[in-house]
Design a protein around this nucleic acid. Sequence first.
DNA 1: TCTACTGTAGACCAATCGATCTACCCGCGC
DNA 2: GCGCGGGTAGATCGATTGGTCTACAGTAGA
Lengths: 185, 185
Amino acid sequence: MTDGPRERLLRSSIALVRAHGVEGTGLTELLEHSGTARRSIYQHFPGGKDELIAASTRAAGSWMKRVLQDVGGQGDVAAAVTLVITEVARNLEAEDFALGCPIAAAAFADSLPVRAAAAEAFHSWADELSAALVAEGREVADAESLARFIVAAVEGALMVARSARSTQPLYDAARQVGVLLGAGG
Amino acid sequence: MTDGPRERLLRSSIALVRAHGVEGTGLTELLEHSGTARRSIYQHFPGGKDELIAASTRAAGSWMKRVLQDVGGQGDVAAAVTLVITEVARNLEAEDFALGCPIAAAAFADSLPVRAAAAEAFHSWADELSAALVAEGREVADAESLARFIVAAVEGALMVARSARSTQPLYDAARQVGVLLGAGG
DNA sequence: TCTACTGTAGACCAATCGATCTACCCGCGC
DNA sequence: GCGCGGGTAGATCGATTGGTCTACAGTAGA
């Protein structure tokens, strides 16, 4: 509990949105989960729930971007993508398919700023992946299109996998993305 | 207004879930949108909101399955997939990125039965697509994996496209799926 | 010491949530 | 005529929603 209320709010917000979605996450539940006073929400996020969710979406997005940098920093992009997908599959199963991607959940929020924060996260991931593909010798335009597609496809596979309570869609994605990366790289 | 309250409830439910998600759709809003008495909900769907949403998810899923049968019934699978994606992109833009896929929204619901209904819809679409791929001469296992992936990838692209208020992710998907369908077919 | 700020605790607000209820209207079959 | 069931209209329920409020503890700086 060394973290301040702001960090606890962000972390709890991500966890609860992963489980219940944006509209399904209530402030009362968030308060008891984070052990935070109600007032602290509006002290750190004057815009209320929307601003808190948007901030936690950005936090989760940049955390994942850092993961992508670490995993794909050196060498084989195809191997890095496969690694990330299998790790996602492992986590999904370990959590009994109860938790999804917080960015995807934010992408379905009612609030436009929250959806925009999700879009920004997707975009930053694709940028990261695209740069790695260019470093492997791909044409820039090809790399950008392929990178955007891989991000969207993996997110879609995760969504289908969670609803079906099966990791197979993720392994399908790993396989087909592997074909795409093998074909032109 | 020739339709009975059950049909109106299903149709309004689909429309509102596309816009606000499952948890974001309130029964009061649903009632005034459908012009239906509150009692009619529990007459046709004794399980309440959850049962109504699950039923509307199944209805939307089988409607889309029928569309896939019509579009892909004869001939070129790649052309059919491209056609569906471009139509989705056109609709998304025409609706100013306000409406998403009702099945995808259901896939993020809190309720397990609702998520299962979404998974069933995804599965039925993939079955349809897989059969068309087999008819083109693909191996069954390849066709099934590829079909599941295409469904997930297009759904992911639609999700990213709506959040980014851009049709580009959908056109990226059309392009890359075209590569996959051209590679092995 | 006094002040100012952060944080906690919790009462409180109007509004809305999903759900249940009664009352009444209407059309169909007996 | 009579009863029955589907449909509408709307009051009402307890619970919960996001948000605002006051009161108070602790701590750092003037």
